[in-house]
Design a protein around this nucleic acid. Sequence first.
DNA 1: TTATTACTTTATAATCGTTATAATTAGTCT
DNA 2: AGACTAATTATAACGATTATAAAGTAATAA
Lengths: 143, 143
Amino acid sequence: MSSAKINAAIDNLKEAGVRITPQRHAILEHLIQSMSHPTADEIYKALEGKFPNMSVATVYNNLRVFKEAGLVKELTYGDSSSRFDCVTTDHYHIICDSCGKIVDFHYPGLDEVESLAESVTGFEVGRHRMEIYGVCPDCKRKH
Amino acid sequence: MSSAKINAAIDNLKEAGVRITPQRHAILEHLIQSMSHPTADEIYKALEGKFPNMSVATVYNNLRVFKEAGLVKELTYGDSSSRFDCVTTDHYHIICDSCGKIVDFHYPGLDEVESLAESVTGFEVGRHRMEIYGVCPDCKRKH
DNA sequence: TTATTACTTTATAATCGTTATAATTAGTCT
DNA sequence: AGACTAATTATAACGATTATAAAGTAATAA
Ligand SMILES: [Mn+2]
Ligand SMILES: [Mn+2]
Ligand SMILES: [Zn+2]
Ligand SMILES: [Zn+2]
């Protein structure tokens, strides 16, 4: 049930002193219920039926608020626009080169690579980023 | 000696039927001799002494030509501008969160993660991307 | 050599995602 | 209600990159 997750997120925000406006509720709801990794613009378009006057800046502003509250993570991909993920537990992504679909997948952290990099470069390592690219089952079928 | 690498790159381009203009030569030379991962704008600025009339579009155009010839790789990072790497053999990067420095480091490919992702998601995996983030020795010292 | 042709560079405008600004609106508190 | 604060909106600005069109340059054909 995603409404539980929505409520938890809202409680989290309230505790941080963030007002729950209708726009914020809708953006959060869309993020959680869509179960995907939408762009700011996709969220904006998905909600323009319900909020015909909402500004795209409101979407960006609130995504930043949610990020600062630790409720969403921003995924940045090269030239194109950022995507937002409301699953904040550690996981990796696999991305279809053909249709752009993004799928979560879990793998134990790459601690060994991190510690090797640390010893070889003298950096103090904080985090890493990894994605895998390929062709998804749907696109394989279409060939 | 980096001139050997420059000559090899030029031969490579000639073989692909690409004309070697003074601008192309200079961009290539800068990329190879700088031993770093410059942005298009950094290259543009580094060469404006020698080519006061060169257009920034020329830098972008030629970086694309070099990319298509397999001579450089583009590294894309979130919002900020792309960086270009003339080391095309497989390697990873570690990036300083404080000063932005990018350092190469080598590690055997993450074949295990790729094959697990393939079996779990049904994707046909082609490649992956990984970077490590942390604080470089210089920035650590400054604390 | 001259003419033709294709390629390259330049200058400039356009595009796109994102952020900044300022005015307006809406909550919150006393 | 009145005062204060935060949020939203509309719009402009920004920065990286790409598109366009004109002018220049090199290769090739006649
Ligand atoms: Mn995810
Ligand atoms: Mn490199
Ligand atoms: Zn696909
Ligand atoms: Zn540093």
